[in-house]
């Protein structure tokens, strides 16, 4: 049962279309797992619908309707097929995220960051704008992320297993959000490895003595 949801601000930014791509993948993935937030976003989208309905009408060019009707039989552009995913991948990765990763979890090229923690960076458009990064993280049970804080905002969606930090305990579907006011030190739960999707819009700043881990999330 999901207990930690994205903030209202993040849901509004998503509904209004103001999120960078990486963060919108994270929110969409949470929505796949959380009926309550889907309902909230439906309500926020309804505001968009009402605002649209209330816009002063603008003149449409002459012949626009005929041009429109002429296009109805156009064939849709073919959508490049996704690979057929295995059961583990279908179970762990919600569709919005799966389509970005485009391969089975077993085929992900994990890169070791520190003992017990591995990373896979996702290709997302416009990640560079704010120095945003999107990545999968995999923690071995008991693995500790060095204590750190963030310059910008961080959001982490748990996909498998769980982790605990000073702010709480997070399991599948939960979103942990932090910013420069939060210093935390996540620890992977015992049991199966914890897999998370993390989005950061600025690099992390380490507050502990371990300067080497500055590159922890940056790679």
């Amino acid at each position: 049962m999901t207990i930690s949801h994205p903030t209202d601000t993040l849901l509004l930014d998503y509904a209004a279309g103001g999120l960078a791509e990486a963060m919108s993948v994270l929110v969409a993935s949470h929505l796949a797992l959380c009926p309550a937030c889907r309902r909230a976003v439906d309500g926020l989208d309804a505001i968009g619908g009402a605002l649209l309905a209330d816009l002063p009408r603008e003149q449409v060019a002459e012949g626009a309707l005929d041009r429109m009707l002429a296009r109805l039989d156009e064939m849709p552009a073919p959508i490049p097929p996704l690979p057929s995913f295995d059961g583990e991948t279908l179970r762990v990765l919600p569709a919005p995220l799966r389509s970005y990763i485009g391969r089975n979890l077993a085929e992900v090229e994990w890169r070791r960051l520190v003992p017990g923690i591995e990373q896979y960076k996702l290709p997302v458009a416009d990640g560079g704008e704010l120095g945003a990064t999107a990545e999968l993280l995999r923690f071995r049970p008991g693995a500790k992320v060095p204590r750190h804080t963030h310059v910008g905002e961080e959001a982490i969606l748990v996909l498998q297993g769980g982790f605990t930090d000073e702010t709480g305990h997070y399991v599948r579907g939960d979103v942990a959000q932090g910013d420069e006011t939060v210093t935390h030190r996540p620890v992977g739960d015992p049991g199966e490895p914890c897999i998370c999707f993390a989005v950061l819009d600025e690099p992390v700043r380490l507050t502990g003595p371990l300067g080497w881990a500055q590159k922890l999330f940056r790679g």
Partner: peptide, 29 residues
Amino acid sequence: IYQIARNKRIDSFRRRGRPEVDVNDPAFV
């Protein structure tokens, strides 16, 4: 219609993709 228009706009103005939730997704709750 707002949802569709918003997604079209995001695609075209910012050249961003817009991930969509899929109710047929096996992971969908």
